[in-house]
């Protein structure tokens, strides 16, 4: 019977690598469980070609709306090459629900320094819940390559002080 010779140095590294994998999984599980960070999962279909004819994403329905409970709903459309409305303003430290759909191809939406980051897949409505803690002006950036104008695809988000 042939025996495999494993060098002690190799053995040590096998244990190290195994340990690292366990640590990475632990970190992910910890954040998912304790900080509630996870990929947005909202399965809701919509016909992207008819987005402008739909009830929710009609041209005059987009923008920021305050709900009865004081939270805000932001309805937006991602289309080559921009997010519409191009400029929105929401208060800090207030629950925000972003609902966004694509008019054409796959886009992504990402706001730096926040957990707002989701793919915008044609045919589906993406929904993200967040609260902006920092006041200031932030870009909304497309982070899924969507065509030649992709690197110009961003819009403006103003996070304002406490609500009046």
């Amino acid at each position: 019977m042939a025996t495999i010779h494993i060098d002690p140095l190799e053995k040590r590294w096998i244990w190290m690598v195994g340990g690292m994998v366990v640590i990475f999984y632990a970190v992910q599980i910890y954040y998912a469980a304790v900080h509630n960070l996870h990929p947005p999962s909202n399965v809701e279909v919509i016909d992207s070609a008819k987005l402008h004819l739909s009830e929710e994403f009609a041209e005059d329905k987009l923008g920021v709306k305050q709900e009865a409970d004081g939270s805000y709903t932001v309805t937006m459309v991602a289309a080559r090459y921009g997010f519409y409305p191009q400029e929105i303003s929401v208060p800090a430290n207030t629950p925000i629900k972003l609902r966004i759909a694509s008019f054409d191809v796959l886009h992504g939406v990402h706001v730096p320094f926040s957990n707002m980051n989701t793919m915008v897949v044609p045919g589906y409505v993406s929904e993200v819940h967040t609260q902006f803690v920092k006041e200031g002006d932030f870009p909304m950036i497309c982070n899924e390559y969507c065509g030649l104008g992709h690197d110009y695809m961003y819009s403006k988000l103003h996070v304002t002080g406490a609500k009046s």
Binding site: R80, Y81, G147, L148, G149, Y152, M153, S155, K156
Partner: peptide, 9 residues
């Protein structure tokens, strides 16, 4: 100005 290059579209 949030203007993509004309030629990208």
């Amino acid at each position: 100005r949030l203007v993509a290059p004309c030629q990208s579209c």
